[in-house]
Design a protein around this nucleic acid. Structure first.
Lengths: 334, 334
DNA sequence: CCTTTTTATAAAAACGTTTTTATGAATTTA
DNA sequence: TAAATTCATAAAAACGTTTTTATAAAAAGG
């Protein structure tokens, strides 16, 4: 028994396929009795429209694509879950593509597998790609850069300001030796937070030591290992504070410090970024710069949907963090 | 400038559209010079095939769908990342649908948006849905139940055995009062681990106290709060061990115990499930039953692809955990 | 009561591909 | 060298829809 098509429904109901289509799509031109009858037949035959036919003809997939290099960690699942829910609210589905293969990304975008795209590709999509997308009037929202033109916008965090604020806060407490735990340099948020941190150091006349930027990959376990290595190298004179690129790093850092017998914040202060759900329950509860992730997710989807509907041009929106002071930071001891 | 189609390429190259199609799809029937010329023209025009047309005609989307109720936590991102990579290896893309709306799920599956589906829907898809899918010869792999027929298989963990083993291990250490921290009852893994735990209790003649099953929702922070409440209620006579439904719960439980001044494993033992990446770096490192998540991901994708290729019928595969003893468990003190 | 308008439905075209079939030229076979 | 085969390409059909256009019947208008 082959797949039931609209043709089968039409034959069974004794009407034309256009009538079936109209009945199914609530186009108000039919005799109510006919419509009712068609719907009953469709139901009885368990008819489900083929989406590929639908998409081809209508030019709409009712899907948004999220292209990302990673789904690891609380940032992403909060983002994905919130975006999904918001998509559903607009009648769209969310398609998550986890890949770093630009070819895959571009052919899916330009091949119209989705009606609009959300991009978090750590800048792998370059000027030239954007130009190509623009020619095709692709609707897009970038999360990995501030950018806008008529069909593309962005919703980003002001990570530079966040880094600056966090560093300023620690400096204000009296810290003089502050290390930064970075991700890799392709992570724009990591880089911008670091730049903000550097700017604060400079502004307050603190020296910058290249050794004091530690690669933690934005992950808890990687940071744990990196900090253990760092402590072994710098045991004689440890920083009095660590500014971790995200909360996961902060947590890994604290675990490593504890494993070496240091108290947080007694001996060393640690500050993170994001304010992920666990941050407040961690021991000690984390001082961090809160990122409104859910807000970013909602603004992104809403903006994209409005662009698709032609109600809005692309715009670049910036979200600012909020310093949340908890127990992991303190005035320095020495 | 409207979207470039295969027709435009054909006209520009002075050949028929079938020739263009053959050139692009490496069908070896063309004069190499013609093929070369067509490819050059396509390249010059920045032609990208419309996937909807392609999918409709060929009946293949080259996409697998992962339908899940959640993407939260290390289990899911390990699963999704590994599945994505494995899909790419087979030339497929992975489509992640995060939704609990059965209607959405079924219309995407039956509407052929994807060539095969991976299902983790906490049993929301029932017998009847499966019957419908079977009529359409949908290729599927279930992660949330053991099941198989000619076009559908499953790859699951033997959570019952894992729960049994973990409980037996604690009993063997001498623990008599062991609490279980569950997810919600729709989480099959939670339920089966609990059942294994109950079976072990029974086998070794330990009494079961209904109060000793605590709802932690498989999340770190929820468990943290639940255990704090539990401690307040049972401060006079605490269990000597907690068996947490997953590692996140174990971590939340340990944090709560610490917050109340209990030592782990000095005063109380805690055992988890999964062996997520952080488990070994946690303080104390977690005793846990390791789930081969990456293996599950790879087996799932491979099985699904082989079913799509018609090389294999559905089969039900079961993975077994491995008890990893670390520092969070110990013989009881009283 | 004949013409015009409205209503309900059917027929046909279209979306952009792939695939099947047809065509004509070049090559081989007998 | 006429017939058969192979090769290269073109033409046409098909995938399952939606949308546009056509048609016939019913209702309204003068």
């Amino acid at each position: 028994m082959a797949k039931i098509t609209i043709r089968d429904v039409a034959r069974e109901a004794g009407v034309s396929i256009s009538t079936v289509s109209n009945a199914l799509n609530d186009v108000d031109v039919l005799n109510p009795a006919t419509k009712q009858h068609v719907l009953e037949v469709a139901e009885r035959l368990n008819y489900v429209p083929n989406l590929n036919g639908k998409m081809l003809k209508s030019g709409k997939t009712m899907m948004l694509g999220f292209f990302t290099t990673s789904v690891s960690g609380p940032y992403f699942y909060k983002l994905i879950e919130t975006m999904s829910r918001q998509c559903e609210r607009h009648g769209y589905g969310l398609n998550v593509f986890v890949t770093k293969d630009k070819q895959v990304i571009m052919s899916n975008i330009l091949g119209r597998r989705v009606d609009g795209v959300i991009i978090y590709e750590e800048l792998k999509i370059d000027e030239h790609d954007i130009e190509i997308m623009q020619k095709d009037k692709i609707k897009a929202v970038f999360l990995d850069r501030a950018f806008s033109n008529d069909t593309m916008g962005s919703v980003t965090f002001d990570s530079y300001a966040a880094g600056y604020e966090a560093a300023k806060y620690l400096i204000g407490l009296g810290h003089k030796r502050i290390a930064y735990i970075s991700g890799v340099d392709t992570m724009f948020d990591s880089v911008r937070r670091r730049d903000g941190y550097l700017a604060a150091l400079k502004e307050y006349g603190l020296p910058f030591d290249g050794d004091y930027v530690i690669q933690g990959y934005f992950e808890e376990d990687s940071t744990f290992n990196a900090i253990k290595a760092f402590i072994r190298m710098h045991a004689s004179k440890l920083p009095t504070a660590f500014l971790a690129g995200n909360d996961l790093s902060a947590m890994g850092c604290i675990q490593a410090l504890k494993a070496h017998g240091y108290e947080v914040p007694g001996d060393v202060s640690v500050v993170g970024f994001d304010d992920i759900d666990i941050a407040q329950y961690f021991s000690p509860p984390l001082t961090t710069v809160r990122n409104p992730i859910a807000r970013q997710a909602i603004l992104t989807v809403d903006h994209l949907v409005r662009m698709i509907q032609g109600k809005e041009e692309g715009q670049s929106q910036t979200l600012t963090g909020e310093l949340i002071v908890r127990a992991s930071s303190h005035v320095p001891v020495d």
